[in-house]
Nucleic acid binder design. Structure first.
Lengths: 209, 209
DNA sequence: TAGATTGTTAATCGATTAACAATC
DNA sequence: TAGATTGTTAATCGATTAACAATC
């Protein structure tokens, strides 16, 4: 399936749901299940079965009438579509509490990502060993990212320095940024940014309380 | 989604953008700015000015023709709408790397939230002091949350225990959950859940690389 | 007054849902 | 065959954008 040819046609909102489907399907597989249906998956996720079938149909027919979807096969196909059937090298900028928690997190590996280098500017952190890597100074960022051809980075620095860090990352070829700093980043059109700000998420719920 | 009285006629998607507006406006104020326009705000956020005006107009006329919006006033109004013109008590379940990073995070206070208690089941963590509180056993969860009338919780436990933790939280009155565990939660219609899973966010970008 | 920008209406665009023939 | 569920089309619903009168 030449996903790059179709890629312009697929709505972003559909792509955004695929990782959630993938996660739920992986869990089903862990529970020992082999087959599921759009109805069952929808129930689990609070999404209509029609939407799931429609979303999946953008990429081909993965199911069988009357029986549903082979979970292992669908997982494999979704991983291919999302390009996480490989392992991506990720750079992590910021070695504060959050940065270190991310470095220790064991959940990246089997889902397509591997933190391979970590940067910070604080003299008492530089040189410290953490997991499989040594915390490096921000001045080495360009060199390391270019050498390893890293395309994905996570930003876990204070809001004040996040834009500058982003600029430096983008300059050396990073195309996808997961930003934990509570600030909006200005980036060129070909760079993707996702935001994680717990306060924004909390504030999305208080309205309803 | 609550389809009864509490749910007004304001679309969820509009509510979801307000915290982002609020964050950007707060930042503008920090930069010493006093007035802004829907156009400027839209440029910063990558959103059309029409959308910002439309979103805000759901809650009243906050601006002036010809001049735009008084930032301080708009911030105040948005805080009121989102009910973060007060400080909400938050319970934190899970004292692993992530839980401790959250406990240390200084960014909650001035944006409407305060972590007031922390729970974990690990014997070597229970009793440990952390910031202003002592890590308590999960068995105390019901008692503490009831006593303090806590409505908001963050879950930072492994995926395997997240649903059980959620069930216990909901049973004692929690209505809003920020879930860091990489799993979908089944909750009643009147309970709100937001998800933070870094891998899902990363997988939303790899498709485009 | 001239220029700027809001709040709002109407038009456009896109996403979700319902329905069902195909088929396992 | 009978029952179940997909993939897809058409209908509905909702969200975004364009446009502009009002007015600061």
């Amino acid at each position: 399936m030449p996903s790059h040819i179709l890629s312009s046609n697929i709505p972003d909102i559909v792509i955004g749901r695929l990782p959630v489907y993938l996660r739920a399907l992986t869990r089903l597989a862990q529970e020992g299940r082999e087959v599921t249906s759009s109805h069952e998956l929808g129930q689990r996720l609070g999404i209509s079965s029609a939407q799931i079938r429609k979303d999946l149909s953008h990429f081909g027919g993965f199911g069988k009438q009357g029986t549903g979807y082979q979970i292992a096969y669908l997982v494999e196909q979704l991983k291919q579509v999302l390009k996480v059937d490989q392992e991506w090298d990720v750079a992590l900028v910021g070695a504060g509490d959050l940065g270190r928690a991310l470095a220790h997190y064991r959940g990246f590996g089997d889902r397509g990502f591997r933190i391979v280098s970590m940067f910070d500017n604080s003299p008492d952190k530089i040189g410290t060993e953490l997991e499989n890597f040594v915390i490096q100074p921000l001045d080495d960022l360009a060199k390391v990212i270019r050498e390893r051809n890293i395309k994905i980075a996570m930003i876990a620095v204070p809001a004040e320095s996040a834009q500058e860090v982003a600029d430096r990352l983008i300059e050396v070829g990073v195309k996808a940024i997961l930003n934990y700093a509570p600030i909006n980043l200005n980036v060129p059109a070909d760079v993707h940014v996702q935001y994680i700000d717990p306060v924004v998420h909390l504030q999305r719920m208080t309205y309803y309380l």
